[in-house]
Amino acid sequence: MNPSLWHIDPTTLAAIVLMALATYACRGGGYWLFRQITPSPLIRAILSYIPGTLFVSYVIPAVIKGGLQPAVGSLATVVVMIYTRNLALGIAAGVAAAWGVWVVIS
């Protein structure tokens, strides 16, 4: 096997450890914090919108930057998701559509 498979870069290790701490701060810290305080209804309402708006903010600029291939792929994923609600099928349909665009263009 390629020896680079086993390499661990010190900066990458630091990044991974810090990511792990940040993630556990969310997993454990949220429960810990909610035991201490009672958040206001406004904070609760804002937090309830975080997951959706976060992924929208990730996807839309990426589609704008990527052009036709991700645009067609995303559309295919959305259509399949609406009809099947199946994560794996949605991803597969999107990749297949993006692949089709890639083949046609190149």
């Binding site: 959706g52 992924f55 996807v59 998701m81 991803i91 999107g94």
Partner: peptide, 28 residues
């Protein structure tokens, strides 16, 4: 593109109704 498609399909699952339209549009 599969990475982006994974997010798009998670988004499709997260859609709770028309109440999400304004926040999502502002985010976009």
């Amino acid at each position: 593109f599969a990475a982006l498609a994974a997010f798009v399909s998670v988004l499709a699952q997260m859609w709770r109704g028309m109440g999400d339209l304004l926040p999502w549009a502002v985010a976009a």
